[in-house]
Simulated scan of single mutants.
Amino acid sequence: MTDLDLIDRKIVAELMRDATLPVAQIADKVGLSQTPCWKRIQKLEAAGVLTGRVALADPARLGFGLTVFMGIEAPDHSAEWRETFAKAVAALPSVMEVYRMAGEMDYLLRVAVPDMAAFDTLYKRLTDAVPIKNVTSHFAMERMKFTTAYPVDTRNR
């Protein structure tokens, strides 16, 4: 369901902005009554367009003051290695995101940890769990922009 109409795109945009909005308020913003709006939200969820509703938190206020981007180079590209790697990163709660990449690195991880000592512990746990050819770590000094809302086109086409 990637071909969303204008109303669906507006609903998705509103929910990405603030998932705590009551259905009545979303309906008003997108020009629907409450019941059809709720049915559309349910359809968007069933189709996998809306994958969850969460509260966003400030990592520093939760004690996760260090963000690290880890580039991983795999020693091989076998199904066995990929499965072992996937299990290893799934077992590390501080690994927030994992992407399989094209280019010089095979995987890119976003990691949130309290400090360098915690990162070192995570690094050791990961490299003990799975063989890795090379790890390149980049430490974020400042988060200048952050959003979870995709730039959905809410204009009439």
Rank of each mutant, 00 (worst) to 15 (best):
A79M: 14
E45G: 02
M1W: 02
A47M: 04
E80K: 13
R61V: 11
M16L: 09
L15A: 06
H138I: 09
L109H: 06
V23W: 02
G52S: 07
P59H: 04
R82L: 12
A55E: 13
K145S: 03
D3N: 12
F146R: 07
P36M: 07
V98T: 11
R155H: 13
E14P: 11
K87A: 15
L6I: 08
R40C: 12
Q34Y: 02
F139D: 03
L109I: 02
R110H: 09
M141C: 05
D18N: 15
M101A: 15
E142I: 02
R157I: 08
R53P: 10
T154D: 05
P36C: 10
T20H: 14
I132A: 08
R143I: 11
L92P: 08
A19W: 01
Y150L: 15
A79R: 11
E142T: 07
P75S: 06
L4A: 09
M1N: 07
S78T: 14
P22V: 02
K133N: 08
E14K: 11
L50N: 00
T148W: 05
V49D: 01
L109K: 01
L15E: 07
N134A: 14
E73W: 11
P151S: 12
A27G: 01
T2C: 07
M144Q: 10
V95R: 00
S94A: 14
V111Y: 01
S137A: 10
K145G: 03
L108V: 07
V130S: 08
I11N: 05
D58E: 12
E97M: 10
M1T: 03
L122F: 00
S137F: 02
T2A: 13
R143M: 12
R40I: 06
